[in-house]
Simulated assay, not measured.
Amino acid sequence: MEGIIKKNVVIIGDGYVGKTSILNSIKQQKFEEQIPNLYDDFEYTQTIGDKQFKVKFIDTAGQEEFAMIRAFSYKDADLFLLCFAVDDRVSFENMETKWISDLKDYSDVPIILLGTKSDLRRTNRNCINKDEIVKFQKKINALFYAECSAKTLSGIDDLKKRILKFFSKERSCTIQ
C-alpha cells in the first residue's frame, strides 16, 4: 500500500444553509441542532483499493464579516463543496453572485454542488427546481450535484462515497 493521500474538502456557502450540520452528520452520523461557527474541521481515513486517504472536511463561516478568515482555508483546498439550501432561493442565487466569484483565484480546484436540507422537499413546494440546479451545475462545470439532509442523514454516506471515488480516480486523470 502506498502512503496516505491527504485531501482537503472546503465547505462554503451562505450562513445558515446547514454547512456545520452537514459536517457534524458526516462526523457523528447523527443530527444535532448547531450553532453557526467560524471554523471547524473533521478528518477521517478511508482505504480504497491500495490507497489510503485522509480526508479533511473544513467548515467555513458564510457570513460576509468572516470573508478574510474564510479565504485562508481556500489555499489548501483540493475540492470545494459549494452549498445552498434547497428551500432558500437567495442562497442558491448567491452561489453565482458571491461564491463563484469568491473562488475565481481557485478555478483549478474542482467543485461539487450540494443542496442541503433536502428533507424539506417533502413539505415545501417552493424548493428550487432540480432542472434549474443541474443547469447551474453545468454552467459552473461542477463535478456533480448532490442533495442531502443533515436532519435525516439522507445522502450523507453517498456524498462521502462520491467524494472518495473522485479522489481515488483523480490520479489517473479520470473524472466520472
Rank of each mutant, 00 (worst) to 15 (best):
A71F: 11
A71P: 05
F72P: 04
S73W: 10
Y74D: 06
K75M: 12
K75T: 14
D76Q: 10
A77D: 09
D78P: 04
L79Y: 06
L79H: 03
L79M: 09
F80I: 10
L82K: 02
L82Q: 01
L82P: 02
L82N: 00
C83F: 05
F84P: 00
F84T: 00
A85S: 06
A85Y: 02
V86M: 08
D88I: 06
S91V: 09
S91C: 05
E93M: 15
M95R: 06
K98D: 10
W99P: 01
I100C: 09
I100E: 06
I100R: 07
S101T: 15
L103R: 03
S107R: 09
D108H: 11
D108G: 05
P110E: 02
I112S: 00
L113R: 02
L114D: 05
L114G: 01
T116K: 05
T116D: 00
K117H: 10
S118T: 08
L120E: 12
L120H: 08
L120G: 07
R121A: 09
R121G: 08
R122C: 15
N124V: 11
N124S: 04
N124A: 05
R125C: 10
N126V: 09
C127T: 13
C127G: 02
I128Y: 04
N129P: 06
N129E: 08
D131W: 01
V134F: 09
V134D: 09
Q137F: 07
